[in-house]
Amino acid sequence: MSTPAGAADPFVEHRGLLFTVAYEMLGSAADAEDVLQESWLRWAAVDRDTVRDERAYLVRVVTRQALNHLRSVSRRREDYVGEWLPEPLLTSPDVADDVELAENVSIAMLTVLETLAPTERAVFVLREVFDMPYDEIADAVEKSPASVRQIAHRARDHVAARRPRVQVARSEHEQVVEQLARAVNTGDLQALMDVLAPDVVSVADGGGRVRGAARRPVIGAEKLAKYLMHGVAKYAGRMTLSPILVNGQPGLRMDVDGEIAGVVTVTVENGKVSRIYSIANPEKLEHVDAVMPLSR
Rank of each mutant, 00 (worst) to 15 (best):
M1D: 05
F11M: 05
V12A: 12
V12R: 06
R15I: 06
L18Q: 06
A22S: 10
M25W: 07
A30H: 03
V35M: 04
V35N: 05
Q37D: 08
S39Y: 06
W40M: 14
R42K: 12
A45Q: 11
T50N: 07
D53V: 04
E54V: 06
A56S: 12
V62E: 07
T63L: 07
R64D: 11
R64L: 12
R76G: 00
E78N: 06
Y80N: 07
L90S: 09
P93I: 01
D97R: 15
V99M: 05
A102D: 10
A102C: 08
E103A: 07
T111G: 00
L113Y: 15
P118I: 06
Y134T: 07
Y134N: 01
A138M: 02
A140H: 15
E142T: 01
K143Q: 14
P145S: 07
R149E: 15
A152D: 11
H153C: 00
A155R: 04
H158L: 08
H158W: 06
V159W: 05
Q167R: 14
E178N: 06
A181K: 03
R182W: 03
L189W: 08
Q190N: 13
L192H: 03
A197I: 00
A197D: 13
P198V: 02
G212W: 00
R216H: 10
A221Y: 02
L224G: 01
L228E: 03
H230T: 13
A236T: 04
P243G: 13
G248D: 12
M254R: 13
V256S: 07
D257N: 14
I260L: 11
I260E: 09
V266M: 06
V266R: 02
T267K: 06
V268D: 02
N270M: 08
G271F: 04
V273N: 01
S274T: 04
N281H: 09
N281E: 11
L285M: 09
D289F: 15
D289M: 14
D289I: 05
D289C: 02
V291R: 15
M292P: 00
